[in-house]
Design a protein around this nucleic acid. Sequence first.
DNA 1: TTGTAGGCGTTATCAG
DNA 2: CTGATAACGCCTACAA
Lengths: 348, 348
Amino acid sequence: MANMKEIAKMARVSIGTVSHVLNNSAGVREPIRKRVLEAVQAARYQPNQVARGLRRDKTNMIGMIIPDVTNPFFPAVVRGAEDMAFSNGYRLILCNTDNDHSKELVHLNELRTYLPAGLIVIPSNFSDLTVQAERYQEAGTGVVCVDRLPTNWSGDSVTADNEQGAYDATQHLLQLGHKKLATITGPLHLTNAKERLNGFKRALREVKLSLTPEYVQETTFDKRGGYSKTLVLLRLIPRPTAIFAGNDMIALGSLLAIREAGLVCPKDISLIGFDDLDLGETTDPALSSVSQSGYQLGTTAARILLDRIGGDTAPARHIVLETSLSLRNSVAAPPKRPKSRSDEPART
Amino acid sequence: MANMKEIAKMARVSIGTVSHVLNNSAGVREPIRKRVLEAVQAARYQPNQVARGLRRDKTNMIGMIIPDVTNPFFPAVVRGAEDMAFSNGYRLILCNTDNDHSKELVHLNELRTYLPAGLIVIPSNFSDLTVQAERYQEAGTGVVCVDRLPTNWSGDSVTADNEQGAYDATQHLLQLGHKKLATITGPLHLTNAKERLNGFKRALREVKLSLTPEYVQETTFDKRGGYSKTLVLLRLIPRPTAIFAGNDMIALGSLLAIREAGLVCPKDISLIGFDDLDLGETTDPALSSVSQSGYQLGTTAARILLDRIGGDTAPARHIVLETSLSLRNSVAAPPKRPKSRSDEPART
DNA sequence: TTGTAGGCGTTATCAG
DNA sequence: CTGATAACGCCTACAA
């Protein structure tokens, strides 16, 4: 592969001049400049990014650590980050953690030796990120946290307004007349799960509805979790008439459980999710959901990083993106009359 | 960040010895070896991958070029590749092309300057890959093609047995008694789409059913394409009683169109997809599909690459992974009696 | 404005 | 078996 020395020879200039032309680091007289550029063209020369990285102590790569690309919500974030990074000349190194904080640690340590220009992280459960990020900061490498934050995170972050989104969803259910509202939350040590629960609670509080502890079920952010916890909820007496699911995967599991129990959504029970994944459109009924843009989460995170790379030293930014309610067919007013006495509160 | 020089000083040896210990490139006497390792531990030293890459003219990164992470089938491939690569000490640089071959070209050119150890590509439409790959081969960098191949691709490849999978699906429909079979294919310049069509044709040929040209619709591999082409099919007289969709996204679009047309799947019309995506489980009816493992596609591709990196110079390998039929509720026997005369063949 | 040369952190070659 | 030392390709003072 052609290198600078060859280009210099071809253009009959010194290697330093070639570098100057390529980086605009010194005013090079036009005729020479042109000669260099022509040589570059002719040889289809492209600077070796590895050598450049070594010299500059920084590469054009942005590390991205996520739980799992395979999980429908994350690819959108990745894509957003990739688009923004790419159009600014940066490439993404992608690492999966499976929500395993020790795997995250390995990636964190490893990645630093690639001299990335920055790091975008969707932290795993019980992330050590705060400690590790300091080592990056020392090297002048920015770290942006996305979607959920480790406890005590004080660096840059981009999240959705989980609390408000959950509040809106819950309020919508309340307005339809639901009184027996349940929620299936994600792991409550994740900030996004906790915030969503808080939004749910706030909406109930506002209408002075007290929270039945059994109506709050915590599980993992996946279909299986939603399925099993829904079975639990459906056995309760009185049975909830609406479920706010911590995310769409949980909601999907719920839907399956509801169907299997011989109930009909939304006639017997309303369901609303969070994330507004594409696959919510094709379920039956189509899933109502709190919409957040993973793509925008990604672009925003990359944007912040690019600013930091560009020398922005302002205090940490905490961007919170708005959510909106995406209403489809999985919500309706609660059933007028309970089907049987067993649906009534067991007040006797 | 600590470097070799510091470790050498700490262990009171030369920098060369440190390198030898770290790479086992020379038998170092145990006491010294131990001293070095202790220093490495103490300083939490990790070799700078960029410097190493420059020196070796090869990094520990594997470039991966795909159409779009956001497209449900590809993340699985990415994940498979990432897992295999990671467990062997390699990292993935991910690039999206949006099926745009000029964007693919940019990535292909750019990526080379990062001195990747290898490249995994899911080619875009009209890919120039064959030409570009030669430049990689010259540098001794392996390139593996996945899922679909550019025309004339002669390098390593990993694909599913698209032809057989399509054949199996079609045969299943035939065995249920369907005679009016339609298919909605992906872009036929993509090898996987073409092979799937070939499988479909072979199954028909085998039972001496002639192919009605209007029953073959070509479109893009997405929901919208499936939707619009299904509308076309549903207007045909006689109307097909079964549709084999080129992939699950197309099938999803089909399902929506069928529903909208007031028909019921599978009672009025059977539907079978390809890929067996997770989201096919939650549609109503649950989607039958030809199952292929994207994950395995990814791991296999990475495995080949690792072998090449390890010095394997055997002739190009063309791995074809088996598919299986994943039967759910979207297929049934054709309706016994046509609802109206218009469903009958127009033989008069 | 252009050229020269040193060095980024590693590895590899070659003496000792 | 261990230690100097010269690259790898590029950038950047600094000198001319």
